[in-house]
C-alpha cells in the first residue's frame, strides 16, 4: 500500500504555522466574548449556533469595515484514502497523510473574505479554508503531483460535506463600525477537544484589531464516562459491556419464562 506524507501539505502550511505574534496593541482594540464558555455534547446533542460578539475601540485607528471570526478545533492527523479498482472490486488504495490540521475550521466574516484582504495576507493570518486551495495554485510552491492535488481537493470537500470546514461570508454583522456579532453553526458530529476563537477587525484591508480565546468542547454525562472508559480503561469497559449483556439476556429469559 502506498503511504506517504503529502508533499502538497506544504501548501497547507499557512493554516498550521504559528502566525507572527500579533502585537498586543491590536488586542486592546477588541473586546470579545462568546455566547457559551464551553460546548457540552450530551447524548441528544444535535448541533447548535454559537454567537460570537464584541466591541471595537475606535480611538486608536477608527471604525472597522470588516470583521472575521475563526473557530478552530484541535489539531488532528488525518489519513485520506482513495479507492481504486482491483480484481473487479473497489478497495482502498493510495493513502495520504494530512498531519496536524485543525479537526474543525469555521470562518465567519462580514464580507467575502477574498474581498477583505489579499490571499497572501489571509494565508499569513490563517483566515479561510479556501486559502489552502488558493495557495495550492501559488506558482511559488513546489508542484504537487496530480494525485496530491486531487487528494487536497478531496480532503477539503469531505471536510466541508461533514460541516467540519465552513466559511460564511455574511455571518458577521457590524454595527456602526463599533459593535459586531457573528454566528457559527456547530454540527452534531463535532470533534471534541480544545477549540480556539480568533477575532480580526480590518479597516480598508489593514488589520486594526485582534483577539484570541479558548472554547473547550467536551462530551458530558454518561456518554463522556463511557467514552473515557473505552479509551482509558478498555479492559474494564469490555467486561462491563459483557456484564450488561449477560444480565440483560438472563433477565429477559426469566421474565418471558414466567408467562
Amino acid at each position: 500500500m502506498m503511504r506517504f506524507t503529502l508533499a502538497a501539505l506544504l501548501v497547507l502550511m499557512p493554516l498550521l504555522v504559528s502566525r507572527p505574534a500579533l502585537a498586543t496593541e491590536f488586542q486592546n482594540v477588541l473586546v470579545t466574548d462568546v455566547s457559551k464558555d464551553q460546548i457540552s455534547i450530551r447524548s441528544n446533542y444535535s448541533g447548535e449556533t454559537l454567537l460570537l460578539f464584541g466591541a471595537i475601540d475606535t480611538q486608536p485607528y477608527g471604525e472597522a469595515d470588516g470583521v472575521v471570526v475563526v473557530l478552530r478545533g484541535p489539531a488532528q492527523d488525518i489519513i485520506l484514502r482513495k479507492k481504486n479498482k482491483q480484481f473487479g472490486i473497489w478497495v482502498n488504495g493510495p493513502a495520504y497523510t494530512f498531519g496536524d490540521l485543525p479537526s474543525f475550521y469555521a470562518v465567519a466574516s462580514s464580507r467575502p473574505i477574498a474581498d477583505l484582504l489579499p490571499n497572501a495576507r489571509r494565508a499569513e493570518l490563517g483566515i479561510g479554508a479556501d486559502v489552502l486551495k488558493a495557495s495550492n495554485l501559488d506558482p511559488k510552491t513546489p508542484h504537487p503531483t496530480p494525485g496530491e492535488s486531487e487528494a487536497v481537493a478531496a480532503f477539503l470537500r469531505l471536510k466541508q460535506q461533514a460541516d467540519l470546514f465552513a466559511a460564511q461570508s455574511d455571518a458577521v454583522e457590524i454595527i456602526h463600525g463599533k459593535l459586531f456579532r457573528a454566528e457559527i453553526n456547530l454540527p452534531a458530529g463535532m470533534p471534541v477537544g480544545a477549540y480556539t476563537t480568533e477575532f480580526f477587525a480590518f479597516q480598508k484591508g489593514t488589520l486594526i484589531g485582534y483577539q484570541k480565546g479558548e472554547l473547550p468542547v467536551d462530551i458530558v454525562g454518561a456518554g463522556h464516562i463511557l467514552h473515557e472508559a473505552a479509551y482509558n480503561m478498555s479492559l474494564l469497559y469490555g467486561i462491563f459491556g459483557v456484564a450488561v449483556a449477560v444480565f440483560m439476556g438472563w433477565a429477559v429469559a426469566i421474565i418471558f419464562r414466567r408467562r
Partner: peptide, 25 residues
C-alpha cells in the same frame, strides 16, 4: 462473543455499549 467483545474493547476500542444496549432491547 464475550471474549470477542473484550478483545475488541482492549485492542480496537470499537465496542459501543450504547449501541449494543439499544440493539439488545
Amino acid at each position: 462473543t464475550a471474549s470477542v467483545t473484550i478483545f475488541h474493547a482492549v485492542e480496537n476500542q470499537t465496542v459501543d455499549i450504547v449501541l449494543a444496549g439499544l440493539l439488545m432491547i
